[in-house]
Amino acid sequence: MLIIDCPYCGRRPEIEFTHGGEAHLVRPPQPAELSDQDWAAFLYMRSNTKGIYAERWRHARGCGQFFNALRDTTTDHFLSTYKSGTPRPVVNTTPSEEGHS
């Protein structure tokens, strides 16, 4: 079980969280103006990154808040968690010497 650093509550066990898919996908403000292809891309296309991935989590059984996280999908180590609506932080992408949960 992972430890996830909720930006509101601090480090808490994964069992309190739900995963919310890829982060930084913004719902188009005028969906009607999108082509079928662009709308399909918004609905279905995800980057599925091997490596550092920006994803959403919700502290569903905690403060209830959605937030974003940078997680290395090859190690399950989190590099950063940050509030929804704030930009993706720049992190050192070289792997750390040893894991910090």
């Binding site: 719902r27 919700r58 569903a60 209830g64 959605f66 929804s84 609506g85």
Partner: peptide
């Protein structure tokens, strides 16, 4: 409720 919270918090804060 989870879906509604998602839109409320992240799309239309």
């Amino acid at each position: 409720l989870g879906t509604m919270e998602d839109y409320r918090q992240t799309e239309w804060p």
